[in-house]
Design a protein around this nucleic acid. Structure first.
Lengths: 193, 193
DNA sequence: TCTGACTAGTCAGATTCTTGAGTATGAGTC
DNA sequence: GACTCATACTCAAGAATCTGACTAGTCAGA
């Protein structure tokens, strides 16, 4: 019952097709919501059926036609009441943290490798988010943009995403190094006596 | 297919009943996995059926009997292969961030209130996690514990959780203040001319 | 000309997660 | 003596999500 609100929030930034949302959910809104293309298409259809978004067919040359969606007044009202309702506590679900939790009982090598890989992914994301932030604020500096900008919601959520990715990177690198050092120590211990 | 691994990882710390896990999932493992009691009971039964955990009935006086579970060798092997498999990318799902994303289109007041509430929750969690970290490392300092401790997985994941909660608190407070200032500005603008 | 990639989407089925209620006992309390 | 709280767990139904395959046209490169 909440993907719908993420979709409505995403559509506040303009007209999008299901396909565009499916691509773009990886940046911006994807910082705090994740959905597969099938879910987005299905949700858009449902939202349209309930009159919360309006779709229009755009005929294209050289590629399939597409349907662009915008939020209706009813959709805005729905968002309004969603925003006013009590928020459920957020939660993270992360395989990699489960592995780290279990790392004392299993071989650490693959966990270390995955931590380093995740750190690289997080670093790439910080760059994408940094670029997005620069684009959103245009030529204003951050403080001025946040004081005077008309559309600051996406900027604020990107800031959260950026902080998250930075923290993720730091922690992954620190944890990977630590586990690697412990492995080296253990190996030395076994070899040396 | 992943709650099972979170449960197995949690059971590495000792024998627990479904009820204890259901309570304790809010600290420790709950930093990165979230589950309702019903799920935990169901998952424990399934795991027992598959021989990945072993349950034993403990008869109690003055309260209902309980079943305590431990990880079997097969469970450990399962964890081992889970740790070695590629991790799915983590994701956050957070109603509150959806609301912030949409904040330009809806009344900000309830969003501000929820941001402040979330900040308070995050602060409370940092204290719980801080206490947990102190308990886990005993009288060693952090560096020494991490170098020499036998069971550091939970400590490492708590560190991640702590950083996350701290960041959450910071961002919520900063965002709430910003939105509140903008509202005050807008009100002054309307009143003044 | 065949292959693969991109655009744009749909469908079915399985798994997972959430909602909501219910069982049973004992301890404390007003 | 009724009420609530805590322990300890179960069941059923529904919503949400994920896996995986499938359609269909265009374009670029081997």
């Amino acid at each position: 019952m909440a993907l719908r609100h993420a979709v409505l929030a995403a559509l506040l930034d303009g007209e999008f097709s299901g396909y565009q949302l499916a691509k773009g959910f990886d940046i911006g809104v994807a910082n705090f919501w994740h959905a597969l293309p099938q879910q987005l298409y299905a949700e858009l259809s449902r939202l349209e059926g309930e009159g919360l978004v309006a779709g229009r067919e755009v005929v294209q040359e050289g590629r399939p036609n597409k349907r662009l969606f915008t939020v209706t007044d009813a959709g805005l009202a729905e968002l309004e009441s969603f925003a006013a309702a009590a928020a459920k506590p957020s939660f993270i679900r992360d395989d990699l943290l489960v592995k780290v939790q279990a790392v004392d009982g299993v071989d650490a090598a693959p966990v270390i490798a995955q931590l380093r890989e995740r750190a690289a992914v997080a670093e790439a994301k910080t760059e994408v988010l940094g670029a997005l932030l620069r684009r959103l604020r245009g030529d204003l500096d951050e403080d001025e943009f946040l004081r005077t900008g008309r559309r600051i919601g996406p900027y604020l959520t990107c800031l959260r995403g950026l902080a998250f990715e930075r923290e993720t990177r730091e922690w992954c690198l620190r944890t990977a190094d630590l586990l690697a050092r412990r492995r080296a120590e253990a190996a030395r211990g076994r070899a040396g006596g």
